[in-house]
């Protein structure tokens, strides 16, 4: 279990508890946090759970985990930035407690 904070475009922060092994996309959906759609359900098949990992976490989680994730990020609607990730590919683990992600302006 660890805390994840989602920062909306207007600066609003939502912090939730996420079980180890659950991903950051699902954390948003379960807690009805706007700004993450996750339409494919976490199968690396869309780009609607796009987020920007906070600079303080960039060295640990700021890079796509796979070639597929990187390719799909090109299909994201909001601009891709150096710390762009698909939040379904960020899985909670003890060392990620306190993670902060920023939500893009749009997922479509």
């Amino acid at each position: 279990m660890g805390k994840v904070t989602y920062v909306a475009v207007d600066g609003t922060r939502h912090t939730i508890e996420l079980a180890d092994g659950e991903n950051v996309m699902r954390g948003a959906l379960y807690n009805e946090i706007d700004g993450i759609i996750g339409e494919c359900g976490g199968g690396l098949a869309c780009a609607t759970c796009h987020c920007y990992v906070d600079e303080t976490w960039a060295d640990r989680l700021g890079q796509p985990a796979t070639r597929e994730e990187s390719e799909l990020l090109e299909a994201a609607s909001a601009p891709r930035r150096p710390t762009s990730r698909l939040s379904c590919q960020i899985v909670m683990a003890p060392e990620f407690d306190g993670l902060v992600v920023h939500l893009p302006e749009t997922q479509y």
Partner: peptide, 14 residues
């Protein structure tokens, strides 16, 4: 290259 395919539709009703 990985693209969104429409076999399962898209959107919230995917």
């Amino acid at each position: 290259p990985k693209q969104i395919i429409l076999a399962f539709t898209v959107g919230v009703h995917s």
